[in-house]
């Protein structure tokens, strides 16, 4: 069983497709991950399952990998008490979660915008440019820079979950470049496809950060680290020259039917 825990999740799901469903049953959505390089044992630790759920999941996995055989069910060591009541985020992590709300508001506008672009690019060019301005300056420069330059550096860079997050940032930047190329070439389909892909990627990415990554990071940082993180984030806010207020005002100006259910 231990050798299974040390393997990356994408390979395991490819080899044992029912493992994806087993993880889904415990709200571990690895089947939708774009990267899938995390080791199974890290995924279980990061999701902070209770000891009972952890054992139940491992028993299911043992049944999938070793059907009909008796195997010893492992128990992973923990750094903090698992699966208690949901705790409040610390101030720096709450800052990132609050920024996600603005990003989600813009993502919620994408499906309608995509339809409009397909109907008439010239009429919707300005809105696409505004969305790209928001993504590049707020989501990427302002928000992702806090993560990449400060938060992620608190952790070992070889940590799988960090590598996955960085890879997703990179994929997102690729979609933005494609939208810009589409604008230059007046290619509405290219714009629509990449805006949609960006929206889907970021929706999943933000969910993973809010529900899994940030709580795991908080459990693994000292109060002193949290204090320095907060101070560093506040310095970014003071020195940022891209006017986050202007970009937040743009996100708030978007009135959409779906906003309430997304936020």
């Amino acid at each position: 069983m231990m050798e299974i825990l040390d393997r990356n999740i994408k390979d395991l799901i490819n080899q044992y497709p029912s493992m994806g469903k087993a993880l889904d049953d415990f709200n571990i959505a690895c089947t939708t991950c774009n990267v899938g390089t995390c080791k199974l044992k890290d995924i279980v630790e990061i999701h902070n399952l209770s000891e009972i759920d952890e054992r139940a999941l491992f028993m299911k996995i043992a049944g999938i990998v070793y059907p009909g055989k008796t195997v010893e069910i492992p128990h992973l060591p923990r750094k903090a008490a698992a699966a208690g009541a949901k705790k409040k985020f610390s101030p720096p992590m709450q800052m990132l979660v609050d920024e996600h709300k603005h990003i989600k508001r813009v993502i919620a506008a994408i499906p309608d915008l995509v339809e409009s672009v397909k109907s008439s690019l010239p009429e919707n060019r300005k809105t696409v440019e505004q969305v790209i301005d928001f993504i590049r300056n707020y989501a990427d420069r302002f928000h992702h820079a806090k993560e990449e330059d400060i938060l992620f550096k608190q952790f070992e860079p070889a940590t799988d979950i960090i590598k996955v997050m960085l890879e997703e940032h990179k994929i997102g930047r690729g979609h933005v470049k494609e939208v810009l190329a589409g604008l230059e070439l007046n290619d509405a389909n290219r714009i629509a496809a990449n805006l949609s892909a960006y929206g889907a990627l970021l929706t999943e990415h933000i969910f993973k950060e809010d529900e899994i990554l940030y709580p795991w990071m908080e459990r693994n940082m000292s109060d002193s680290q949290i204090g320095r993180l907060y101070s560093d984030f506040l310095s970014v806010e003071e020195s940022f020259d891209g006017s986050p207020q202007r970009l937040v005002a743009f996100a708030e100006s978007l009135t959409l039917n779906k906003i309430q259910e997304v936020l």
Partner: peptide
């Protein structure tokens, strides 16, 4: 903390 100019995390 509200009266202070700086912000710090309070636990």
């Amino acid at each position: 903390a509200k009266k202070a100019k700086r912000k710090i995390p309070i636990k």
